[in-house]
């Protein structure tokens, strides 16, 4: 498989990466950039564990080819906190008990972050809808919804 050289911004930092043409953004993040916070739960766009923000929108990174990311701006879970200061979403996910096994957490955080970026005052329904593609088997979801509501309130 021939390699493609792409230049993109990940968590504010410019990266130059050589990736095979059949690699996904998820593979590139985990295997080339060692950003293993982004999780692989199904590799087919069904569970939301690999959600990252690409050019302002939440995407399933397993469904985006790395080669499509030339010039893109990507935010992953590693990019949410700034200089040790947690994002409000992270803070409230911790405080409300929205995290159990933690495997869906990065995807949940990024879906919620994208929602708050485009809609700073979401209704409860807006939040539930924005997170409908992020499967969680542990928490039963309501604490996650509460965390996003609290984060929206201080956003």
């Amino acid at each position: 498989m021939s390699l493609h050289r792409i230049t993109l911004k990940v968590n504010g930092s410019t990266e130059i990466v050589d990736v095979p043409g059949n690699w996904t953004l998820l593979q590139m993040l985990r295997e080339k950039l060692a950003l293993t916070g982004t999780k692989n739960g199904c590799a087919s766009g069904e569970c939301g564990a690999c959600t990252v923000i690409m050019n302002g929108d939440a995407v399933n990174s397993c469904m985006v080819l790395a080669a499509e990311c030339e010039g893109a701006e990507i935010i992953t879970v590693e990019g949410l906190s700034k200089e040790g200061q947690l994002d409000a979403l992270q803070k409230f996910m911790i405080e409300t008990g929205g995290i159990q096994c933690g495997f869906c957490t990065p995807g949940v955080l990024l879906s919620a972050k994208a929602l708050l970026m485009r809609n700073p005052n979401p209704s409860e329904y807006d939040i539930r809808e924005a997170l409908a593609g992020n499967l969680c088997r542990c928490t039963g979801y309501n604490r996650i919804i509460t965390a996003v509501q609290k984060a929206a309130a201080v956003h």
Binding site: T36, G37, T76, L80, L86, I94, I99, G102, T105, L109
Partner: peptide, 14 residues
């Protein structure tokens, strides 16, 4: 949960 909220928590595949 601090590790889990920041992506630092290590799972086997990581």
């Amino acid at each position: 949960v601090l590790e889990k909220a920041t992506g630092a928590a290590v799972y086997t595949d990581d």
